[in-house]
């Protein structure tokens, strides 16, 4: 069992911002349930990303789990507790038409691509388009470029394009994300880089109602 002992609360920096929540400052806030759907081509690491997130976080009373296609994770943010219910989807093209059954009523979506596969970003873009057209209009969408551990981490001073194996430059994806109003992250499910940020920022988003 990996890391369950590592108690961590997301962004524990300032407990000061409690005003918006009225008097609710006791530690056991009622968790806000957030349905989060994971989309992205097969094998970009959707499942690993979530497993990394879930296994890294501390959670008392882990709830019954049948398998890793559906996972839950509670996180304490500054002034609220969020319980993510994470719905994984099958990324193969042949299952594309089933996606609406999964993203129906989702408040958040993480669209994952693989930074070493340009085609996976195209696929991610088509998911974003579909979500923005058909999903819950207030859905918070995060774009996550996964597998940055595969592109050799080169000193910051060097140009990104020299990273071996990378097919999707950070700037390009970021520009796209800005244009379409998405949260943007690069992550390594393998090493854990950036994983928590994805969920923290989604949780902090104003659209995730308390």
């Amino acid at each position: 069992m990996s890391n369950t002992s590592r108690q961590s609360t997301l962004s524990s920096e300032s407990p000061a911002r409690a005003g918006g929540e009225g008097t609710n400052q006791q530690p056991n806030l009622k968790p806000v349930q957030v349905k989060l759907v994971l989309l992205g081509e097969a094998a970009v690491g959707k499942s690993s990303l979530v497993l990394r997130f879930v296994n890294n976080e501390f959670q008392e009373n882990k709830e019954p789990t049948i398998g890793a296609a559906f996972l839950t994770q509670k996180c304490r943010l500054e002034d609220k507790v969020i319980k993510f219910e994470i719905w994984d989807t099958a990324g193969q093209e042949r299952f594309h038409s089933l996606a609406p059954m999964y993203y129906r009523n989702a408040q958040a979506a993480v669209v994952v691509y693989d930074v070493t596969k340009a085609a996976s970003l195209d696929k991610a873009k088509s998911w974003v388009k579909e979500l923005q057209r058909q999903a819950n209009p207030n859905i918070v969408i995060a774009l996550a470029g996964n597998k940055i551990d595969l592109v050799q981490p080169i000193e910051e001073s060097e140009d990104e394009s020299t990273e071996s194996g990378r097919q999707v430059p950070t700037e390009e994806a970021k520009a796209y994300a800005n244009e379409f109003g998405l949260l943007f992250f690069e992550t390594s499910a393998k090493k854990g880089d950036g994983v928590r940020d994805v969920f923290t920022e989604i949780g902090m988003n104003d659209l995730i109602k308390i």
Partner: peptide
Amino acid sequence: LIRHVDGEEGADKFLP
């Protein structure tokens, strides 16, 4: 079955 055959579980493996 998925666990038995190989490691990574998720919807990609499960749904088929």
